[in-house]
Computed example of a mutant assay.
Amino acid sequence: MKKILPILAIILVAGQLVFANVSSKERSALLDLYNDTNGAEWVNKWDLSAPVTEWYGVKVIDGHVVEINLFRNNLSGVIPKSIKKLKNLSHLNLAFNNLAGEFPKELSDLEQLKVLKLEMNRLKGVIPDEIGSLKNLEELSLFNNFLNGSIPESIGDIKNLKVLNLSSNNLKGEIPESLGNLTMLKSLGLFENTLEGSIPSTLGNLAQLKELVLANNNLGGEIPKEFGQLASLEILQIQNNKFNSYKSLEMMNTKQFLVFDYDKEDVRLDFKDMDFSKTRMADTKFEEDRDN
């Protein structure tokens, strides 16, 4: 027995040296991600016998995994629930893959996240209300998935958010007024969903907004007069909706616009300092077969 103990100690120490760059808990979470997303078929595979610091797309600082970037790496399967163990993760980019299954609410436990990019996958289900707990998030990109339900009001609690893109999903209901709390927001994309109701006037609070894309929904009513406050706006796309009045657009100084699309050719508005060479009027419906 006395001889066995030193041998076990040597094995234990050796194991700690090999994987000393991260804790066993964090390494286990990474292994779950590898196995649950068919790591053997990845474009850039992980050498599981090597230190975690050498794994493709993984960044480690002070013994903690802080970044995972597996963009366009042929991931398939589901995002494991154990990903919540990566408590120091600040960047997660799994975009342009073939991930399926429900949007994992466990991602909401990653309170250090600044960037969450899951666009161009096949995720379904609702965006959980818990998403609002990601107070440090600056970019949330979920476009082109199969997410349904409504946009959570809690997203308005993510005050540091600069980019929010939920376009090309199956989201329904109204645009939450709480999005007007995102005063750091520079880009808001809600294109191609089935959103309805009026645009909330609170969006006029987004003074830093440069890009607003609401096209291809079922939005109605009038354009809020508060849009006149969006002095930084460069891209505005609101075509293919059901608005009954565009009169408030006259309040906008549109000479700085790079893109300005709406779909009422017979509307005659007195725009302030409009440079029509920089704008375009949408005269055709946008159609896309997302299964192709």
Results as ranks from 00 to 15, higher is better:
I4H: 05
G15T: 09
Q16C: 12
L17V: 09
V18E: 06
V22R: 00
V22K: 03
S23A: 13
E26M: 06
R27G: 05
Y34H: 09
N35I: 10
N38H: 08
V52L: 06
T53I: 09
K59R: 12
K59Q: 15
D62V: 12
H64A: 13
N69H: 11
N74W: 02
S82M: 07
F96K: 08
P104M: 06
L107P: 00
L107E: 01
S108I: 08
S108Y: 02
D109H: 06
L113A: 04
L113M: 02
M120Q: 12
R122V: 14
G125Q: 05
G125C: 06
P128H: 06
E130S: 15
S133P: 00
N136D: 14
L137M: 03
L137F: 01
E139M: 10
F143P: 01
N145Q: 07
L147H: 00
E153T: 14
L161R: 03
K162N: 11
V163F: 03
L164W: 01
S168H: 03
S168W: 03
N169R: 03
N169C: 02
G173H: 02
E174F: 12
I175C: 05
I175F: 01
G180Y: 00
G180D: 03
N181S: 12
M184Y: 11
S187I: 14
S187L: 14
S187H: 06
L188I: 12
F191Q: 10
E192G: 05
N205S: 15
E211W: 09
L212Y: 00
A215R: 02
N216M: 15
N216K: 15
N217P: 04
G220D: 09
F227M: 08
G228P: 01
G228F: 00
L230F: 03
A231T: 15
Q237E: 15
I238P: 01
N241V: 13
N241G: 09
K242D: 04
Y246T: 06
S248G: 08
L249D: 02
M251Y: 13
M252F: 00
N253F: 02
L258E: 14
E265C: 10
F271M: 12
F271C: 05
T279Q: 10
M281V: 10
A282F: 03
A282I: 02
E288T: 07
E288F: 05
